[in-house]
């Protein structure tokens, strides 16, 4: 993964010069391997091993309710999944949710970050409040918003003037998705804004001041100075949130359980495996879900990489 370069590890200014003595470097190597062995093994045990097993099981027609009937069927499960309208519909819904939520979060989160950057009073209070949505259990957030949008016990209908008090948000796809995305955006915007705030702090005030002196408008300063200088922060924030949003599951489970075409690709996989006990096709979906996350990551990295290169040239 080329993205590791976005991690801090790529340069280490405080690193002492390497000891010339190769014994020492060998012992360092040995110590390091000892230190990372256990964590690495654990990470692989819970991910790589089950993933390989999923790869294997995906080649079978295998249902837990009829374990004796397990038969090898090659790639048929993948063919079934990839030619099924449901798979593509759920992928589309997932991508839609991802794009909409991340866009909202980026804009609102940036606005919040600007405010927090400027503010000089009550910083502790703001920091505390902004961490609360971040810390709240997603399931709790899902419930809070589900009940808020409920037409029998909620308040949203009475607060929104253009909405009928009897309007049932969970009766159709569009409005259900609005409710789901509201919960998702509410909970994760704070995280986004904190990452962006950290990025904002790295933009030098002098440059902004200089642009101001040159007569640049607020808008120009934002576009020409601030945003280009925090591209790295934005990329990390977007990448992480996008991948998180692509895996959306909790809110959908709690709020609609996938009714009215609000099912995400994660939810589809969960249903095959855990509700229907279809380990064969469920494993095939697991593999496809994993691959699609890699694709999403690659696309985002690619998009931003081009931008970064341009910025460097310019």
């Amino acid at each position: 993964m080329t993205t590791t370069e976005a991690r801090p590890t790529s340069h280490k200014p405080s690193k002492p010069p390497k000891a010339p003595d190769s014994d020492r470097s060998r012992s360092e190597n040995r110590l390091a391997l000892k230190l990372v062995a256990l964590p690495l093994a654990l990470m692989l045990l819970v991910t790589a091993f089950p993933m390989l097993r999923a790869l294997y099981l995906s080649l079978f027609d295998y249902s837990l309710t009829a374990p004796d009937d397990r038969t090898f069927i090659g790639l048929s499960n993948y063919v079934t999944a990839l030619t099924d309208g449901l798979f593509w519909r759920d992928t589309l819904i997932t991508v839609f949710i991802m794009v909409v939520t991340v866009s909202f979060e980026l804009v609102i989160g940036f606005a919040f970050a600007m405010v927090m950057h400027k503010v000089i009073f009550a910083r502790g209070v703001i920091r505390t409040s902004i961490l609360i949505p971040y810390g709240v259990i997603t399931v709790v957030s899902g419930f809070a918003w589900q009940f808020a949008f409920s037409n029998t016990n909620g308040f949203v209908n009475s607060w929104l003037p253009f909405i009928d008090t009897d309007f049932n948000w969970f009766a159709e796809q569009g409005s259900s998705l609005v409710a789901i995305m509201a919960s998702e955006i509410w909970k994760t915007t704070p995280f986004m804004s904190l990452l962006l705030l950290a990025g904002l702090a790295q933009v030098s005030e002098d440059m902004i001041e200089a642009a101001k002196v040159d007569g640049a408008t607020w808008f120009q300063r934002l576009y020409k100075v601030i945003l280009p200088n925090m591209r790295a922060a934005i990329m990390v924030a977007v990448l992480f949130r996008a991948l998180d949003a692509y895996r959306i599951f909790d809110n959908i489970f709690v709020m609609t359980a996938g009714a009215n075409n609000t099912e995400s690709i994660s939810f589809l996989t969960y249903r095959q495996v855990i509700e229907q006990f279809q380990l064969g096709i469920g494993s095939a979906l697991s593999v496809l879900l994993f691959l699609s996350v890699l694709v999403v990551a690659a696309v985002i990295v690619k998009l931003f990489r081009v931008d970064l290169a341009d910025a460097r040239q310019g």
């Binding site: 993964m1 993205t3 590791t4 991690r7 590890t9 990372v36 690495l40 990470m43 692989l44 819970v46 991910t47 091993f49 089950p50 993933m51 097993r53 999923a54 099981l57 992480f240 991948l243 692509y246 895996r247 599951f249 994660s266 939810f267 996989t269 969960y270 095959q272 495996v273 855990i274 380990l279 469920g282 494993s283 979906l285 697991s286 593999v287 879900l289 994993f290 996350v293 890699l294 990551a297």
Partner: peptide
């Protein structure tokens, strides 16, 4: 680099794709 890459991939991992095999294990 391998450790870091593994960590990164796991952070992005769609957990739902693991519950089936994990349940089975």
């Amino acid at each position: 680099k391998f450790v870091l890459t593994t960590a990164l991939v796991i952070a992005m991992f769609p957990v739902v794709s693991l519950v089936g095999p994990l349940f089975d294990m």
